[in-house]
Design a protein around this nucleic acid. Structure first.
Lengths: 121, 121
DNA sequence: TCATATAGGGATAAATTTTTCTCATTTGAA
DNA sequence: TTCAAATGAGAAAAATTTATCCCTATATGA
């Protein structure tokens, strides 16, 4: 497992929230779980751009940070469900605000993002 | 300059906002500029953990994404100021919501973050 | 004259995150 | 019997981001 070499700053609310929501897919995971997609395979279908591995890793971190709870049903083939914890639910309005801003400014955002994409021609 | 090899997903509001606010220091830069620290040297003093180079790079991206505007005063020694654009200002309430959540849950957050830090003993 | 403040960029290294590939397990369906 | 669906993890590579180091330029104050 990777070990950090640089300690994070935890000076203010912005630092703290960053520690738990940074990660390419974390916010979307929380959002989809909130919307009712709780099984890993569902989440993977919702977010096909992400590799299975990362989703697992990020779910693990969300769990460690107590934003989601994992239920493993003792079945074969395995069945697993993630649910938001009470704590995780408090984050939903904040994520909603992020998504709302993105939706409201979709046109402008697409424009400036595409204009500045540094990518292969 | 680094060129992306993987194109970003831009499917929903959450994807779009992520494109412009991801970056270790971007949110804090926006916040401090909003609070009145507008000159690069002020921002560097506010965020001493960040290297000067990255702050410049992230400010450049914020500028490309039209969240901040840069004014270069034709003076020597040089004077530069960043201001939020009208567009950038619309993001402030969202950032405030992030910081508020982080502040409100500071104790719990510190606890789960420190508990799970993967770092050198 | 020398250090400091101002602002920024190139090159390169290091850190971190994400992807890709592979393997393991069990049930049910074709 | 062979394949797909489920879930998950290790190893290694690739991608991306951030840090470090060094250089430029000029005015001011000690």
């Amino acid at each position: 497992m990777y070990e950090r070499k640089i300690q994070p700053s935890l000076n203010c609310g912005l630092d703290l929230i960053a520690e738990v929501i940074y990660g390419k897919w974390k916010i979307r995971l929380l959002w989809f779980i909130h919307q009712g997609s709780k099984r890993p395979s569902e989440l993977q279908r919702k977010i096909p751009d992400a590799s299975r591995r990362v989703l697992n890793m990020q779910l693990k971190e969300l769990e460690e940070h107590e934003l989601v709870a994992k239920i493993i049903y003792p079945q074969v083939p395995p069945k697993v469900e993630y649910n938001l914890t009470t704590f995780g639910q408090t984050l939903i309005p904040v994520i909603a605000a992020l998504g709302k801003w993105g939706d409201e400014h979709e046109e402008h955002l697409r424009m400036v993002i595409l204009k500045n994409l540094k990518g292969p021609a």
